[in-house]
């Protein structure tokens, strides 16, 4: 998967969690939580959805790596390369 594809996957997952979220103007460097009306319960959904789709395990200690769109892509890049 390319980095661009990974980014799109994340956006698609977030859109699925919150249909009304406006994702067109997301700043990829800023924390997702500060830009979206989502809480920690919702963030667990991103982890679980990635696991369901790509069978990747994200340990709890790594959750902070998913803070912004850019950090998601950086973290997931090597892990999703093969799929």
């Amino acid at each position: 998967m390319t980095l661009e594809e990974i980014k799109n996957v994340i956006i698609e997952i977030i859109q699925d969690i919150d249909e009304d979220a406006d994702l067109s103007s997301l700043n990829p460097k800023e924390a997702l939580r500060d830009q979206l009306d989502l809480d920690s319960m919702d963030f667990l959904d991103i982890v679980m959805e990635l696991r369901k789709r790509y069978k990747i395990q994200i340990p709890e200690a790594d959750y902070p790596e998913l803070a912004s769109l850019d950090s998601c892509v950086n973290y997931l890049g090597p892990r999703l390369q093969s799929s």
């Binding site: 969690i17 919150d18 009304d20 009306d37 989502l38 809480d39 319960m41 919702d42 959904d45």
Partner: peptide, 15 residues
């Protein structure tokens, strides 16, 4: 109301 995203009912329904 639907726009209060952090309200328990809306969180529950999202989950």
């Amino acid at each position: 109301p639907p726009d209060v995203k952090s309200a328990p009912i809306n969180r529950l329904f999202r989950q």
